[in-house]
């Protein structure tokens, strides 16, 4: 394989990761639609989900163009099997209670913003254009997540207990976000992205600042789960895809 083909393969993989993270998390958030704790929050969650869905559509659309095999964003979203999904495990975990949804979103949002800020300076226009657009949206996501973390952590005994254990549960799924495999390294060499380890310290600093305000002790780093970026998923992804892909699987090519 030529170096150019290698680089294209890496870019395709990387665009899938960006797209799948946004798509799967969007789907998890959509599960709250009609179930939010209050109407305003129901709308807010749905709006964050919508932002992520739009971003997923952009990234997957770009992935399809780079791959150049005639697959568009919809084809990639609705006809790939679980092992072909390239999202981090963190985003596919069940939504749980509102504390778990909030803790996951908070940990993800801060990483997402740091990554997108780095990608905004990408040497690859497909990546830079999408990132510059998404950064503006994700800033609002971070603000909202921070507020909820403080509200729940510094709230009642019950809310504090729940958000505290939710952070502990989600924490071991954050390690994957800061790893650079061959795909990331190939692209980092070309200035398309940054090495993901570089995001870890700023992420920790930002996250810990908010956790402190929320009176929550940041968990210590210990064992970290991984594998999502290489198609090794938890059992939860299959159920999610069964619901998300049902229509296109049952009625291939259906449009309305």
């Amino acid at each position: 394989m030529t170096p150019a083909a290698d680089a294209d393969d890496a870019l395709f993989e990387y665009l899938l990761r960006l797209g799948d993270n946004a798509l799967i998390l969007s789907h998890r958030l959509c599960e709250w639609c009609g179930n939010g704790p209050v109407l305003e929050e129901d709308l807010a969650i749905s709006n964050v989900a919508l932002d992520l869905l739009g971003q997923a559509r952009y990234w997957l659309g770009q992935a399809g163009e780079v791959e150049n095999k005639g697959r568009d964003a919809d084809t990639l979203a609705f006809t790939r099997d679980g092992m072909d999904f390239r999202n981090a495990l963190l985003v596919e975990l069940p939504r749980g209670d509102f504390a778990r949804t909030t803790a996951r979103q908070f940990l993800f949002d801060h990483w997402h913003l740091l990554l997108l800020e780095a990608l905004a300076g990408s040497s690859e226009p497909r990546v830079a254009d999408g990132a510059v657009k998404a950064v503006k949206e994700v800033r609002y996501h971070v603000e909202r997540s921070d507020e909820w973390m403080v509200l729940l952590g510094d709230g009642t005994g019950e809310s504090r207990d729940r958000i505290n254990s939710a952070v502990c549960e989600m924490w071991p799924y954050t390690g994957e976000l800061f790893e650079s495999d061959g795909v990331v390294r190939t692209l980092a060499d070309k200035g398309v992205t940054t090495l993901h380890e570089k995001l870890r310290d700023p992420w920790r600093a930002r996250v810990e600042r908010v956790l402190k305000r929320a009176t929550i002790e940041p968990p210590a780093d210990s064992f970290m789960h991984g594998g999502g970026y290489h198609g090794v998923h938890t059992e939860h992804l299959g159920y999610l895809l069964a619901e998300m892909q049902f229509l296109q699987r049952a009625y291939p090519g259906a449009q309305w």
Partner: peptide
């Protein structure tokens, strides 16, 4: 501010403390 996200992603929901009416604010973006 009542909610950062209003009826659509581009708006936030506010309330006026004078006339007590809620209103949408088109967020800076």
């Amino acid at each position: 501010c009542i909610a950062r996200f209003g009826s659509t992603p581009c708006k936030a929901l506010y309330r006026c403390r004078e006339c007590l009416e809620p209103f949408d604010y088109f967020k800076c973006h």
